[in-house]
Design a protein around this nucleic acid. Structure first.
Length: 367
DNA sequence: CACGCGTGGCG
DNA sequence: TCGCCAAGCGT
């Protein structure tokens, strides 16, 4: 461990800090659906959903997901399409594909019981250092660090750690500190309390230090630098791409959709056929889309004029999608699947493609 | 290590 | 309007 940090921890009133933090948590913690019991499966599902996702967003998804898949076994045996549908709109879809894969592994190799050792649980797909510590501490009361963005922010202030928390190696520093600070009597409450404090009091831009149960232990507050911490380097801007998408239909009122590849962006989700446009050619977007539909799906179409646009912002890129409608003139190849509008609700789409369908539905375009 | 990987909310 | 997210993980 860093010598300076070691020095800070030696002079830190650990027991008093634990006591003040945990007592605050036990009094003030929110009544969240995944805190009703310590079922390791439910703790696991909640931790995966909460990765990079707000509590308010997760709550309805968690409730309905647990209703649909109440146990390890039910999720392991579930149809993949149905599982993706339950995640539709939550984002980071590899989370749920990895979760189902890991749950199958638990069913087959661990008798359906979530393992309770760091080694075994780390081998499960989608369970990284944070989720490992969260499940072990919250479900099994094992004193392992669960270092997320909240914990790094809170501890960077408490201990005045000026390390860039955007760098992967910073997590090591905070794990080392947490090993020293964590309550051996109640590691579950301790870890959750750090995160709860980060969510409710020790917030990123304007922390409520006057309400903080541990401000007398906080180095940054003492120095008046709480808003300078944590140090976090900037991410780079997403790169904009021009896209065109087609809502295709036939004389039987079928719509034509395509399943995305099993890896990469929005893997295994469904979409309306679309193509990235080359803005350097002389061809119009509409012409490029017609050519693409012919080349990719062997389909001839009668395409409308521009019907609308949809923007889809990812963390690393932006799709600017121009929307067209089109009647198919022949039967497309098997990569384009005809479905009725009723059947659409069984397929999981990214939000941008739900918006594309909305534009189609709300238009006065007659199918 | 750097980057790919979603989405909706907020100051 | 727009940057910055919010309980990260896989490669």
């Amino acid at each position: 461990m860093d010598k300076d940090l070691q020095n800070k921890l030696e002079n830190f009133p650990i027991e008093s800090f634990q006591h003040d933090l945990i007592n605050w948590y036990l009094t003030e913690k929110r009544d969240l659906p995944w805190r009703r019991d310590q079922d390791p499966y439910k703790v696991w599902v909640s931790e995966i959903m909460l990765q990079q996702t707000r509590v308010d967003t997760v709550i309805p998804y968690f409730t309905s997901f647990i209703t649909k898949f109440p146990t390890i076994e039910s999720l392991a045996d579930a149809n993949e399409e149905e599982v993706l549908k339950a995640w539709e709109g939550l984002g980071y879809y590899s989370r749920v594909r990895n979760l189902q894969s890991a749950v199958k592994e638990v069913k087959e190799s661990y008798g359906g019981v979530v393992p309770n050792t760091p080694n075994e649980i780390s081998k499960l797909k989608g369970v990284g250092p944070y989720t490992k510590g969260a499940i072990l501490s919250i479900a099994y009361n094992i004193p392992e660090p669960a270092v997320d963005g909240n914990v790094m922010r809170v501890l960077s202030r408490i201990l005045s750690i000026w390390e860039d928390i955007a760098k992967p190696k910073a997590r090591k520093t905070f794990e080392a500190a947490t090993y020293e600070l964590i309550s051996k009597e109640d590691p579950s409450s301790f870890n959750q309390a750090l995160m709860e404090l980060g969510a409710l009091i020790c917030t990123p831009t304007s922390p409520s230090c006057l309400l903080c149960p541990v401000r007398e232990h906080c180095s940054a507050f003492e120095e008046g630098v709480q808003t300078e911490l944590p140090i976090k380097s900037k991410k780079k801007k997403p790169k904009p791409l021009q896209m065109a998408a087609a809502v295709l239909y036939d004389q039987n009122s079928n719509l034509y959709i395509h399943k995305r590849p099993s890896s990469g962006l929005l893997a295994k989700l469904w979409e309306y056929p679309n193509v990235e446009l080359d803005v350097t050619t002389g061809k119009t977007y509409r012409e490029q889309l017609v050519d693409y539909l012919q080349d990719e799906y062997d389909v001839k179409v009668e395409l409308s004029e521009l019907a609308g646009t949809v923007e889809h912002i990812f963390s690393h890129l932006i799709w600017n999608i121009s929307i067209y409608f089109g009647k198919v003139k022949n039967t497309p190849n098997g990569d384009l699947v005809p479905v009725t509008e009723t059947e659409l609700s069984k397929y999981a789409f990214p939000v941008s493609h739900q918006k594309i369908y909305q534009i189609f539905k709300e238009s006065d375009f007659n199918v």
